[in-house]
Amino acid sequence: MSALEAALTAGRLAAEGLQRETVRLYRPGTAAFDWDTGTDGSSAPLALYSGPARVKPVARSRGEEVEAGEVNVTLREYTVSLPWGTDVSERPAVGDLVEVSASPDARMVGLRLWVTGIEFSSTATAWRISAEDRS
């Protein structure tokens, strides 16, 4: 094992030690209503990942206020770090959702984040996903 591989292995173990939240990463189902039959044909959400993660606010995030559907919302940026070797059923995409289901900080439970970007790197210590809180 090279010195780089040893350093990455140690860094990845350390990063996993910081992943104290449990999250669910999923793609929302598509809404569909059949006007001819009057039935709901919406598809179920697609589960991509469930397990440990680190959910951390971005230090430089100021909380940008925007208008959405005539309601003011504040966008706050987060970085969601999953274990580096995470396998997912499909690659996450912008618009997917991350929900915090457990955390040592009880205030984070139920936090819902929209994926805004996915980062890939062979020398990263964790798989990082950019997301935002739209509340």
Rank of each mutant, 00 (worst) to 15 (best):
L97D: 09
E16N: 12
D36C: 09
L97W: 07
W35P: 06
E99T: 14
V98I: 11
T37Q: 01
E64V: 14
S135K: 10
S81I: 11
L111T: 11
P28R: 00
V88D: 09
P57T: 11
R128N: 12
L25N: 05
A15G: 05
L25F: 03
I118S: 10
A126Q: 03
F33S: 08
F120P: 01
Y49R: 02
L113A: 01
V58K: 09
Q19C: 02
V98R: 00
E77H: 06
L4R: 13
T37G: 06
M108E: 14
G11E: 03
W35G: 04
K56R: 15
E99N: 09
W114L: 07
S121L: 07
T86L: 01
A53F: 05
E64G: 10
R54I: 09
T74N: 03
W127Y: 08
A32C: 10
L48I: 05
E70N: 15
M1Y: 15
S43C: 08
S2N: 02
R62T: 14
E67C: 04
A124Y: 02
P104H: 03
F120W: 01
A106K: 02
P57W: 02
V73Y: 09
S2T: 03
D34C: 11
A15I: 01
R76G: 11
G41D: 14
D96W: 06
T86N: 04
